[in-house]
């Protein structure tokens, strides 16, 4: 009976694994095939990998797109971690009359889809361009700034701060640490897992972000990887070999970061704190 049960369990799990891994495998296989083979659904690896890579790197500025994507993802993630964790920490630790009302309003802002905010935001950056062109439309900072502080991450940090041992703050105060010192020297090191989880989510969001960079970035030299991939499909007869190669290149960084930080990520999501 037990054996039957485990066969059943593994059977279901194997099917689920195949379903979720197949697209990934197909992507890797397609990277090595010619465009016409891909559109006819060839499932075996081909010998066109170098050709695809050469075509991609010769006709498109992948290096600059990779740099822009990394720049946006790293700067936005670091800023977002610092700003949102300070906010989440503040909301949880300090007392204030209007705290909960402000927090609820903040949460409400999560209900507004980005598409609805896009036009006003674009207008705002249009005005910014008049005063500080370096932070306005068609700059990488215009992509980063709206994501520096988001309701989701403030909420995420506030929830996780609930599990933070408040006695540590008292201990810090008695030892003569300033309030900001407590945050950086006690809170941050003991909440490593939370920061890692938030870091992964923020990095992936910013790396994969499409809609906002699409409307705000115009020139080819500020193009990011997702925009480049979208452009590859712009032709009437697109080269699928190049497209899949670019998708693989765009997937590698997020996959690597996830694999390296996976341990922290799981712990951070389940909310454990190393005291």
């Amino acid at each position: 009976m037990n054996k039957l049960k485990s066969i059943f369990t593994y059977g279901i799990l194997s099917i689920a694994a195949i379903v979720s891994l197949f697209p990934f495998a197909w992507m890797l296989i397609s990277m090595t095939n010619k465009s016409s083979d891909i559109s006819q659904g060839r499932l075996l690896p081909g010998s066109n990998l170098l050709e695809n890579l050469r075509n991609l790197f010769e006709s498109y500025n992948v290096g600059s797109a990779l740099f822009n994507s990394f720049f946006i993802a790293i700067v936005a993630t670091v800023l977002c971690l610092v700003v949102s964790s300070l906010a989440g920490y503040g909301f949880e630790i300090y007392r204030s009359k209007g705290k909960d009302i402000v927090f609820n309003i903040l949460l409400l802002s999560m209900m507004i889809p980005f598409a609805a905010l896009m036009v006003p935001l674009f207008r705002l950056f249009g005005d910014v361009s008049q005063v500080f062109p370096a932070f306005g439309i068609d700059t990488l900072y215009a992509v980063i700034l709206p994501y520096v502080s988001t309701a989701f991450f403030i909420f995420f940090f506030r929830q996780n701060t609930k599990m933070f041992t408040k006695d540590l703050i008292e201990a810090g105060r008695i030892d003569g640490l300033s309030e900001i010192g407590i945050f950086f020297r006690i809170y941050m090191p003991s909440m490593k897992n939370t920061f890692a989880a938030a870091g992964i989510i923020s990095f992936m969001n910013n790396w994969n972000n499409f809609l906002w960079p699409l409307v705000i970035l115009q020139s080819p030299d500020v193009q990011t990887i997702p925009l480049l991939i979208s452009n590859l499909g712009s032709g009437y007869s697109p080269d699928f070999g190049i497209i899949y190669t670019a998708i693989v290149i765009g997937t590698i960084p997020t996959a690597l970061i996830f694999f390296f930080l996976q341990k922290y990520f799981v712990e951070g999501m389940t909310g454990s704190v190393k005291g």
Binding site: V119, F122, S129, V215
Partner: peptide, 12 residues
């Protein structure tokens, strides 16, 4: 997005 926001900044 550009035209409905009324700012022609960045338009081709």
């Amino acid at each position: 997005t550009g035209l409905s926001s009324g700012t022609m900044n960045g338009m081709p």
